[in-house]
């Protein structure tokens, strides 16, 4: 079960937003929205460049290995967890070339009795800022670990 002494632990990481990484994500999703692929189409819609889609903010914590490091520190086994909830609050757009800084925190660990044993819910909160020191997006992720 998750190591509760890690509640409040924070992880800081940085991530350079690459244009092709945005395109790769929407390609995998099968999202053909030109605002996520084509700078000129996005500019016609009033953006300064193509923008990152709504779920892009979860890529940095995964790609940097931060989330997997946190699972490791918490003694959580990957094969026992499921993603339970995910939420975002958006403040500014993410563009290619942005330099993001993420601070992820182990917010909460709660237990519940499930049908087949104990369930443990682990909540992470990540706040991203960009190179202009603007808060870009806040992300909350809830995962559940089966015992």
């Amino acid at each position: 079960m998750a190591d509760k002494s890690k509640i409040g632990k924070k992880y800081t990481f940085t991530w350079q937003v690459e244009r092709e990484k945005i395109r790769e994500l929407v390609e995998a999703i099968g999202d053909n929205n030109p605002n996520y692929r084509d700078p000129e189409a996005a500019q016609r819609q009033g953006y300064k460049d193509m923008v990152a889609p709504p779920t892009f903010a979860t890529v940095p914590i995964l790609w940097t290995g931060t989330l997997f490091q946190a699972f490791d520190d918490l003694n959580i086994e990957l094969s026992r967890i499921m993603h339970a909830e995910q939420s975002y609050e958006y403040y500014h757009e993410i563009f290619p070339g942005d330099s993001l800084k993420g601070i992820a925190e182990v917010k909460k660990i709660t237990e519940k009795k499930g049908k087949s044993g104990k369930l443990e819910f682990i909540e992470f909160e990540t706040i991203y800022t960009n190179q202009h020191d603007e808060t870009v997006v806040k992300e909350n992720m809830l995962v559940v670990e089966r015992s």
Binding site: L25, V26, A28, I29, G30, D31, N33, N35, Y36, Q45, G46, Y47, V51, P53, P54, T55, M82, H83, A84, E85, Q86, S87, Y88, E89, Y90, E93
Partner: peptide, 23 residues
């Protein structure tokens, strides 16, 4: 991500302020 595709097929990305799901 697929749900987000559906959302921003309807509203522009910049209009989206909060987005939550339960799996």
């Amino acid at each position: 991500g697929i749900a987000a595709q559906a959302v921003t097929d309807w509203v522009p990305k910049r209009a989206l302020k909060k987005f939550n799901v339960r799996f």
